[in-house]
Design a binder for these strands. Sequence first.
DNA 1: CTGTTAGCGCATTCAG
DNA 2: CTGAATGCGCTAACAG
Lengths: 336, 336
Amino acid sequence: MADGKRIGRLGVREIARQVGLAPMTVSRALSNPELVAPATRAKVLEAIERAGFVPNRLASSMRGAGRMLGTVVPPLINSGIAEQVQGMSDEAHERGWSMLLVQGAFTPEDEEEAIRTLLGWRPAGMILQSFVQSETARALLVSSGAAVVEISEIKGRAPIDMALGVSNFETAYAMTMHLARKGYRRIGFVSTPVHGNDRLQQRRHGYHAALAELGMAHEDMEVEGTITSRGGAEALAALTDRHPDIDAIFFGSDVPAVGAIQECHRRGWKVPERIAIAGYGDMELSAELHPRLTTVRVDRHAMGRRAVSQLLARLAGEAVPTITSVGFEIVDRESA
Amino acid sequence: MADGKRIGRLGVREIARQVGLAPMTVSRALSNPELVAPATRAKVLEAIERAGFVPNRLASSMRGAGRMLGTVVPPLINSGIAEQVQGMSDEAHERGWSMLLVQGAFTPEDEEEAIRTLLGWRPAGMILQSFVQSETARALLVSSGAAVVEISEIKGRAPIDMALGVSNFETAYAMTMHLARKGYRRIGFVSTPVHGNDRLQQRRHGYHAALAELGMAHEDMEVEGTITSRGGAEALAALTDRHPDIDAIFFGSDVPAVGAIQECHRRGWKVPERIAIAGYGDMELSAELHPRLTTVRVDRHAMGRRAVSQLLARLAGEAVPTITSVGFEIVDRESA
DNA sequence: CTGTTAGCGCATTCAG
DNA sequence: CTGAATGCGCTAACAG
């Protein structure tokens, strides 16, 4: 501390000094090893290892060589989102990129703030796990010049840059049809509040469209609840109170579906005999549940990977589709 | 693109130009508003808003004013970890800090790499959600000068900087005693592989200590399994095969405990009459399950917040305890 | 209260 | 294949 510069403050400069080379050569040995003579490279890497030097990525990023992708994760990390993040992380990691995660929230204001925070770190690309609501945030994203993937409902509004997802309309339509084919006639629907959420609105439309097509439309067999087990139990209670003759419920997530099944056990109701329960997401527990849960499977891990690879392709200047639809599957098990 | 500098590339300089002030004043209006005349500040903020300027945090960080904390999250984001991360994120966010999350892994090599990646971003503080195994990584962390909190078993090895957690020995001891008090005599134990994991080893010791004290020690009523529902079902099968007279199982996590209960339903076994099941973690589902799960509750959200506030206190130069023990609670419900 | 100077640690660009 | 100069955007430290 006696002299101005902190002693031993490690940087390419210090490493270069130790091996008698220019800082630039050290930098190259790290980021473009093929441009450096093998012997030189070995010497440099050895010195780096010995000194315990970890290159400063902030500085790299400022020079435009940043390898950081950002994403906003919702406040409730359910297993679906966790898998998606895992997929992003795996793909990014394998390709030498880092993921910056900032925790977002449900309101457009919070969303905007989260995006602002993320943009402050100047990621080369961003993944947004739902459609961006705030117009200000959309404008910010566009002007930032970052590549953007929205993992979202793929019908409807134009994406900021790229969109990736399933058609929630189709998945809900397919499940409703599936339930009808299995003989259920009075099919209820439970989701979190659909207001302002494209995906949920599309699911609701899919459910309605299927009922209409089947000539089975009935009013008010829908309820909104929280995406928790308790929320599922409450939704079941509300719906069966109002409609004692209801014979199936399609939940917008496996989490409340599991809660609803517990509530059935508690009431001594047989599933699916007294009432059938279907979910959405196929979490790990769903296949082990008693009875095993019938649900919609979307490969979230693959979606995460795909989002990253599209981002990297775009950044590499390759042509990338604006909208990518991923498949889904109805997993028919015991609960419906 | 005609001229060298990208037109409209926003920075404090550009904002300063627009309002006829020095860049430094713009910077201050953002980070130390109280040092700037209210009128000036208003003018600056208005220009920033209008231009859609988002300050570059990479540059701030390079000047030492970085407000970033890093953490390594394990590859399986179970709900416990998710809550902990949520707590960290909430606390950080409220205090104007960002959290950089990198996905880690189970082996010491992967752990080291994750820590290296994180250190590359030069966070002012780091939170490690388990005890750091790799000696190289420990050395790197020490020499980085970052404040470090390990959320971990709090007995045993000295922390790198600060440690925060419960005594896993005590929690497991307490639950085993609780089960004995309720009349169970043949109590099994299930956890993920304990090798190299301080927390799990301590839990195992706690279980053994309680049995020994009760004069109930029995051999080989333990099994290792994955932290999944299926893993729980399998562990139940293995243990009841080997010990038909087993009357209770203490699982190291609620996740496999839930799976085990499903397996019991499938076999037509009553819980807790045929066999009692206890978990660890108290996830949301646990209270809604049929039967409701008896478990150990640790407030993970609060732990996350606490980790961040300790980090910030340390960074502010305040005195901070090296080891902090947080409480726990045995939640006695129906399953045991 | 506001401005000036200088530099954080790298990588781009151009020259050897 | 290696090196020198320069600057990314911001803020600490020191004037005024």
